[in-house]
């Protein structure tokens, strides 16, 4: 059974000056333990796709099955449980609560999971150690760098041992060395724990480090390097970014 199954997913945004078609006829299946990159230029809909998968947004059409369960049929507390226990999400921005300390931020999923204070503090510090920020535990988010914020977010995403890790541009703010470290860590997680990992990126250098690349353009999947994919739409336009050009967002 696939962890993620999207059938004919569409997303129309009506809260803008004119209705915007962000996603159109998306069919995507991701199996357990896969390490996938979703790549596409800015505005392609890749972040929107990620938000749907991460249960942060609701598609306007189509069906989304998470572990075989139709998401649309789930109620608020079931969804909250999934976000808490199953999914670890790393956002592009607005990652941390500004008024809580770094360690309090990392602890948060554990608080909602009902873990007692001593245990969750220990786990949070362990996770911070994993991303090399143990000594920043009591700092406030505004006191650490953007890259460090990202790493704290990753630590938090791992708090509840999620089986699905979603990262939206996790290396966007990082230099090459730190980028590699993050991707290596994610790969290690994938190999050691069998977690399913989906990364959104615009950087092909990052994409090649994963096992599978799904290319999104204009709200549609135009390429999928997976052998399991039954449809591979290839469009004539080349991929915009060249491997040696770094785009900073």
């Amino acid at each position: 059974m696939n962890v993620i199954e999207l059938k004919d997913i569409g997303m129309v945004f009506t809260d803008r000056s004119e209705p915007t078609l962000a996603l159109s006829h998306i069919d995507l299946a991701i199996g357990k333990g896969e390490f996938v990159a979703i790549i596409g230029p800015s505005g392609s809909g890749k972040s929107t796709l990620m938000n749907v998968i991460g249960l942060l947004d609701t598609p306007t059409s189509g069906e989304f099955y998470l572990d075989g369960n139709l998401v649309a049929s789930l109620n608020d507390s079931s969804l909250a449980k999934l976000r808490r226990e199953k999914i670890g999400f790393v956002f592009q921005s607005f990652n941390l609560l500004p008024r809580l300390s770094v360690v309090q931020n990392v602890e948060l999923p554990l608080v909602y999971g009902g873990i007692p204070p001593k245990q969750r503090r220990a786990r949070a510090l362990e996770l911070l150690g994993l991303v090399g920020l143990h000594d920043r535990a009591n700092y406030k988010p505004h006191q650490i760098s953007g890259g460090q914020t990202q790493r704290v977010a990753i630590a938090r995403a791992l708090a509840n041992h999620p089986s699905l890790i979603l990262a939206d541009e996790p290396t966007g703010n990082l230099d090459t060395k730190a980028s590699k470290a993050i991707i290596d860590e994610l790969r290690r997680l994938n190999r050691d724990t069998g977690a399913t990992i989906v990364i959104v990126t615009h950087n092909p250098e990052v994409a090649v480090q994963t096992d599978r690349t799904v290319t999104v353009r204009d709200g549609e999947i135009v390429n999928d390097t997976s052998q399991k994919a039954s449809k591979t739409k290839s469009k004539s336009a080349p991929i915009a970014d060249s491997p040696h050009r770094r785009i900073t967002v």
Binding site: G54, L56, D76, S77, L79, A80, K81, R83, R84, E85, F89, F91, F94, N95, L97, L108, P109, Y112, G113, R156, N160
Partner: peptide, 8 residues
């Protein structure tokens, strides 16, 4: 953010 992390 709290909801995204898993608060109902």
């Amino acid at each position: 953010l709290r909801k995204a992390i898993g608060a109902s």
